[in-house]
Design a protein around this nucleic acid. Structure first.
Lengths: 232, 232
DNA sequence: GAACGTAAGTTGAAACTTCAACATCAGGAG
DNA sequence: CTCCTGATGTTGAAGTTTCAACTTACGTTC
């Protein structure tokens, strides 16, 4: 376990709990590490959700069966990342997805019950963990909210501009960098890469924005309602 | 406050806390009710997020400014419903949306700090509330996850089938009712209503499904991979 | 500095969605 | 029973997106 201390301390679930506190906390929670070979199933769709997991080494994938029978990878997680926490905390009876090892992986499994319900002899960090978990769930909620807002737009232009406006707001500036290259941005927005390129080109010619690579600048326009009405 | 006891007990945040416990709990949390007239802003975009809210009476709207300057209503909440909980729990510094009274409304505001951090003299229900809040956040996460999966599909057919498959799984049967009429379903899926109708008709003719009104039945097909491979 | 590889921008055709207008159908009111 | 009304199904035109193939730009390697 000691060899994975880096992954553990980097995991937001254990934020604020020092290396010293971790050992006690983990045994109090009944956490147990397991090793999976590439391709092994860690959590199986349909099974009850008892544990949430932390990747200690290697990588795991969240995998789902599409309506046409195709298997699609929803995400890939590396060391220090958390999985199944929402399923566990929501009290789901059946996993809606598979979690499989993308390569040889060590995983720490934490029984959800033991986290959500206070232990008899309150170990000092239990509350901290609950607080961390809440923050993680809330933060993911916001990320989903963002993405939902973006993909709710019907056109490539709408998605792109909604995304860029949110990024500008986050950066607190009209000028900002995005963490994607074109292909990744297209995947994130759920549109075609070449169509995205075309749309960026059009917006550039229209004087709405300028960009080089991943650096974007939104230009002021007369018709854009970028002033907020005074609060009542 | 007494007159809003129904809204309070119906609010999932207070599940498991009896009427008797509520009064103590609320004062321990520093909750305060406020009345808003129609159109008044309850929480203003850009302001720091200090409180989460419960609708006691009337209705509130979550409102956002679109990229083209249009104001769009993200959702409308009625009595016993919760708002801003994700923003508060994620520790956001600025509200990303406005919350306004859709009609005359009474709202209970709860300072987030007091919920997330344990009080000195541990009131009996504090842990229950944290547990409830966690469950609420996790459940919303799942709802978002669902919706993201659906809207990630590029075509009307893909969205519809993904949605129906998830509903069938939820119902545990190939035959189930959906809680939408066609227009609502189209809005939920983010597609055109008439296009949706057309697609349903096509799927019906193809023998993929049958439906009357809001009752759907997915029919078995040779090419659909609806059998899962054995777990390793 | 020439060759190479990857990322980004272009383009035309095919496929799909949206839009608008209209046809049908079911249920309720009178 | 008939007339409404609201929901649903149909359809063709117009507009967008996707797809595939290619060009251009940029950075690295040898």
């Amino acid at each position: 376990m000691q060899k994975y201390m880096d992954s553990l301390t980097a995991c937001p679930l254990f934020a604020g709990i020092g290396e010293s506190g971790l050992t006690d906390t983990l045994s109090c929670l009944g956490a147990y590490p397991r090793r999976f070979e590439k391709g092994e199933t860690i959590l199986l769709e349909g099974e009850p959700v008892r544990c949430l997991g932390v990747v200690l080494s290697g990588a795991v994938q969240i995998v789902r069966m599409g309506y046409d029978g195709s298997r699609s990878i929803l995400s890939k997680l590396g060391p220090a990342e958390l999985f199944a926490e929402a399923f566990a905390c929501a009290g789901m009876t059946a996993m809606p997805v598979d979690v499989v090892a993308a390569e040889k992986a060590d995983v720490l499994l934490l029984p959800a019950e033991r986290i959500l319900h206070p232990c008899e002899h309150p170990c000092g960090f239990h509350h901290q963990m609950i607080y961390n978990l809440m923050r993680i769930l809330a933060t993911k909620n916001l990320a989903f909210h963002r993405k939902t807002e973006i993909t709710a737009q019907r056109t490539t232009r709408g998605k792109l501009l909604t995304y860029l406006l949110l990024e500008a707001k986050r950066a607190g500036s009209r000028s900002f960098d995005i963490p994607f290259d074109r292909q990744e941005l297209a995947d994130y927005l759920g549109v075609d890469r070449s169509g995205l390129s075309a749309e960026i080109g059009k917006l550039r010619r229209e004087g709405v924005l300028s960009c080089t690579r991943s650096h974007f600048t939104l230009l002021a326009r007369q018709d854009a309602a970028d002033v907020r009405p005074q609060s009542p």
